[in-house]
Design a protein around this nucleic acid. Structure first.
Length: 565
RNA sequence: CGGGGUGUAGCGCAGGGGAAGCGCGCAUGGUUUGGGACCAUGAGGUCGCCGGUUCAAAUCCGGCCACCCCGACCA
């Protein structure tokens, strides 16, 4: 490709709106064009990269037994109501109507449709395992698109669905996919880490996220340096400190004028926060829930949501709290009426806690579970804190940020049962197909690759996904012999099967070098009058910016040898 | 949806009741040519939108919209 004919220009100044590295690099390099919030066009260079990533994904999916299909973006809303996920996705689901007023939606993912296909095309245990997949546009009306391609409303995703006769079969398919994913990340230059994950709106049991550790990431993950355990926040637990016990004492009311916070309460009474119990109020699908946790800990909303099997969970409003007869700041599990109560297991690690009295400016000393109050459930719903001990090995846990570049789920029989995808086993019995689903966001992978592979000058593409292999910088093209030599080099590189971006623009050397650094193509060949005097080209490795001279006649094999593709 | 911010030329920004500006980029001509060159000339605007105040609004007032950032959600 001759740069003089490229649709798309690099910028000299960065658009002010861009904050994240990949977003800035993409805009500056002229790779993407924003159409609206979270909706982008891809310019030629980005599209080449995306196509390369897709090729890698296809190769790995096919090698693992996948078969490519393509499903529609437009789907009847009814299908989503049947599976129950219309409400699970809520406002994230784009909804529309056809001319007859029939409700439709734009697919945020494709479990429903693939399961429907399985109903017609899988009837016997002999028809499995199967692994159909597609690389296709997903639409999600995200509440907050952000960071360029990191989180968008329209994006391409590879989604594969496994169909097996039983759990053991699913385990095999799942492991194959995990391995295929590892291969994909390695080839894209991304050291992604598999972490245990929550299954979210997709539903399902076991689940792993593939995370690229990055400061700019929007996910937090918990890691143990000791045993290698890694999980996302809603899936991880830390060892909670056991508080010294003094033996149960009788309940005692104490006046606490003006005390509204745990910190204030602990100071007022003269105990550590870990000797208090905190009350938090949620509304889960319309029902008020009273949550108790030790004062030094925080509730993890997702853990609570999963425990309650709630689709909509939020903090209760002040009005709801009041209406439930609770006194904010002094609410108490003791005398809470018939409100559902969920407790974190930390309330058993110690005794004689300070709690609210459910009266203004009053608290109770020496509250003990279960002597003084009951809970409908007592389990771990606490947010992990860095430094807490690992529940496996005791080493202090660390919390780091990361980018989720893939997610795999063991769905089980949720979709096959709700949509009626059954097969006959060897004994002629009807059984639900056991499913898994496996997703990778292609654009996010590209963005993550940039986050991971760049320097202060620009992108440093991992070779297998670089938009081109070689960048020819031809300087002073109007000097005798330069254009001829550069053209010839361009032709012979292409003849050797190398993808070349040829900067044949009438621009100054500085502009060309800066654009070459920005675009990040692995090998740069500089053709100039100075170099041609020695019948040579200068070869620059983009990753190190090291330069060396090579005879012009040998440029093609030299460039080839530098590429690991 | 809660909080914060920004909308003026393709990009980056200034201006803040009385003639629409600057830098970069773009076009033409000339001089340059190994790390974002220089000179000259020129083109390019619904000052986000609607309404109000005023003799006069990019500027003041009201409403709306869009986009960005922080949170809750996801590939």
């Amino acid at each position: 490709m001759r740069l003089s004919r490229m649709f798309g220009k690099t910028l000299r100044s960065e658009p002010a709106e861009a904050e994240s590295i990949s977003h800035r690099l993409m805009l500056k390099a002229g790779m993407v064009h924003q159409v609206s919030a979270g909706v982008y066009s891809y310019m030629p260079i980005a599209w080449r990269v995306l196509r390369k990533i897709e090729s890698i994904i296809r190769e790995e999916m096919n090698a693992a037994g996948g078969q490519e299909v393509k499903m529609p973006v437009i789907q009847p809303l009814e299908l989503w109501e049947t599976s129950g996920r219309a409400s699970a996705f809520g406002d994230n689901l784009f909804k529309l109507q056809d001319r007859r007023g029939r409700p439709l939606c734009l697919a945020p993912t494709h479990e429903e449709v693939i399961t429907q296909m399985a109903v017609q095309h899988i009837h016997s245990y002999k028809d499995m395992p199967r692994m159909p997949y597609q690389i296709q546009t997903k639409l999600r009306d995200e509440p907050r698109p952000r960071a360029g391609l990191m989180r968008v409303r329209e994006f391409d995703m590879k989604d594969l669905y496994s169909m097996d006769v039983d759990q053991a079969g699913l385990d095999v398919s799942y492991d194959k996919m995990v391995q295929a994913y590892r291969n994909i990340y390695r080839r894209c230059g991304l050291p992604a880490l598999a972490v245990e994950a929550d299954s979210g709106a997709i539903g399902g049991k076991d689940s792993h996220e593939f995370i690229l550790i990055a400061e700019s990431g929007e996910d937090q993950i918990v890691q143990c340096p000791g045993c290698g355990f890694a999980a996302n926040m809603e899936r991880a637990s830390g060892v909670k400190s056991d508080q010294p016990r003094t033996g149960p004492l009788p309940l005692e009311e104490v006046a606490t004028p003006g005390v509204k916070t745990i910190k204030g309460l602990a100071e007022f009474v003269g105990v550590p926060e870990s000797k208090t119990l905190k009350a938090v109020f949620y509304t889960a699908d319309g029902e008020m829930v009273f949550v108790v946790i030790r004062g030094d800990l925080e509730v993890n909303d997702v853990k609570l949501k999963n425990l309650l099997h709630a689709t909509d969970l939020r903090l209760a409003t002040d009005e709801e709290v009041k209406a439930a007869g609770l006194v904010a700041g002094s609410a108490s599990p003791i005398g809470r009426g018939d409100l559902k109560c969920i407790a974190d297991d930390s309330i058993e690690l110690g005794d004689n806690f300070v709690v609210g009295a459910n009266k203004p400016d009053t608290h109770l000393l020496n509250a003990n579970y279960p002597r003084d109050f009951r809970a409908d459930a007592i389990t771990d719903i606490a947010e992990v804190e860095a430094g807490q001990g690992c529940t496996n090995c005791g080493q202090p846990l660390s919390i780091t940020r990361g980018i989720e570049v893939g997610h795999v789920f063991k769905l089980g029989t949720f979709f096959s049962e709700s949509l009626g995808a059954y097969y006959s086993d060897q004994d002629g019995r009807q059984k639900p197909i056991v499913m898994g689903c496996y997703g990778i966001g292609v654009g996010r992978l590209m963005a993550a690759a940039m986050e991971q592979n760049h320097d202060e000058h620009g992108i440093v593409w991992p070779h297998p996904i670089a938009p081109y292999h070689v960048h020819i910088c031809a300087l002073s093209l109007d000097r005798p012999g330069v254009a001829e030599a550069a053209d010839q080099l361009y032709d012979s590189l292409q003849a050797a099967g190398i993808e070349v971006l040829y900067d044949d623009r009438d621009e100054s050397p500085g502009v060309k070098f800066n654009d070459a650094d920005l675009l990040g193509i692995p090998v740069r060949l500089t053709v100039s009058p100075r170099n041609l005097k020695q019948d040579a080209v200068e070869i620059t490795d983009r990753s190190t910016l090291e330069k060396r001279m090579a005879p012009l006649s040998n440029a093609v094999p030299e460039a080839q040898s530098m590429l690991s593709i």
